[in-house]
């Protein structure tokens, strides 16, 4: 395992990823395809968050990027900027793309060290020291079989495989499942630290948006097989604002905007508004004695995905 044939181990530049009008049907005459014309771009070198409700199509989209399956229609591209290619059965693309799925794609019946040795051999940029340090920190016992591990430890094993592979496109699909809070934060810290030193593209799908939104540079929201938005997280945060202050003043600033939430305590009100709030409006609001706050990506996400659900029902 340690002795490896001499080979070029220069890391390629970070990979970007793109879906263009992608359709995936698991059955030929599926009325609700897993992806129904999804288009998105993951910028190379970013940490991109992929958000979506259960069954929205996140996992399918990620499986396409890693070449795990093929799209029924549309184009799938990964690779360095300007040199993107279809990853399906493309050795160059898949050797540099690591998708970690729930359960980790490991040999459940053999000791974890066998799986780790396999990945170490298969991944050209594998960092054994990083893996060893992380396994130690997350308290994963390599002598154990993954099938005998707790869900959290098994997830941690997958997380370590993902980070140590150092793939120019590294994707974590809800890797945190079953991990306790200290383990999750240890993973986030390791992710940020290693990403800072070894720039690459990381896609992270998660339901724990509050925990991870600060890690993102870009955010992609998928809903019912379509992409609702794909943009820098700062733009997402700028899609809304929260205002706190005297209720009557606050209400003046609502001004026909969509209210995501409204709370009142005596004469004080807090509202979360959907819609951009430009510098001049901010100024006026502060001058009027209001306190401005950011809107959590979580709140906007809930709002956006609930919205489309209503639209669909309205159409019926």
């Amino acid at each position: 395992m340690t002795a490896r044939p001499a080979q070029p181990t220069t890391a390629p530049p970070p990979f970007g990823a793109e879906l263009r009008d992608v359709v995936v049907r698991y059955r030929r005459r599926d009325e609700a395809p897993a992806l129904g014309g999804a288009s998105l771009t993951v910028r190379p070198g970013t940490i991109t968050g992929l958000l979506g409700r259960n069954g929205a199509g996140k996992t399918t989209a990620l499986a396409l990027l890693a070449g795990f399956r093929r799209a029924s229609a549309g184009q799938v591209l990964v690779g360095p900027a300007g040199a993107m290619e279809d990853p399906f059965e493309n050795p160059w693309a898949v050797m540099h793309t690591q998708l970690v799925r729930e359960g980790g794609d490991v040999w459940g019946d053999d000791r974890a060290k066998d799986t780790l040795a396999h990945y170490a051999d298969a991944r050209p940029l594998w960092d054994g020291d990083l893996a060893a340090g992380l396994l130690d920190e997350l308290e994963v016992d390599l002598r154990k079989k993954p099938d005998e591990m707790s869900r959290g430890k098994r997830s941690a094993l997958g997380a370590v495989i993902g980070l140590a592979s150092r793939a120019p496109l590294t994707i974590f699909d809800e890797v945190y499942l079953g991990m306790d809070a200290p383990s999750r934060y240890a993973f986030y810290d390791a992710l940020v630290a290693d990403y800072a030193e070894h720039p690459r593209t990381i896609v992270l799908s998660s339901h724990l948006i509050d925990e991870v939104e600060r890690l993102f540079e870009d955010v992609v929201v998928v809903d019912r097989g379509r992409v609702l938005l794909a943009e820098p997280v700062e733009d997402v945060r700028a899609r809304g604002v929260s205002l706190v202050g005297p209720a009557d003043v606050v209400e003046q600033f609502v001004d026909g905007r969509r209210v995501l939430s409204r709370q009142r305590l005596g004469g004080t009100a807090q509202v979360t508004l959907f819609g951009a709030f430009d510098a001049a409006q901010r100024r006026r609001a502060t001058d009027a004695g209001l306190e401005l706050g950011a809107v959590a990506v979580q709140d906007l996400f809930v709002h956006l995905t609930r919205e489309t659900g209503r639209d669909r029902e309205a159409q019926r």
């Binding site: 940490i47 934060y185 986030y188 810290d189 940020v192 630290a193 800072a196 600060r214 540079e217």
Partner: peptide, 15 residues
């Protein structure tokens, strides 16, 4: 450093 700042506050290093 960028890395220290990013890890300390758990934010994106680009930020």
């Amino acid at each position: 450093s960028t890395t220290e700042l990013a890890t300390t506050f758990r934010i994106n290093p680009a930020t």
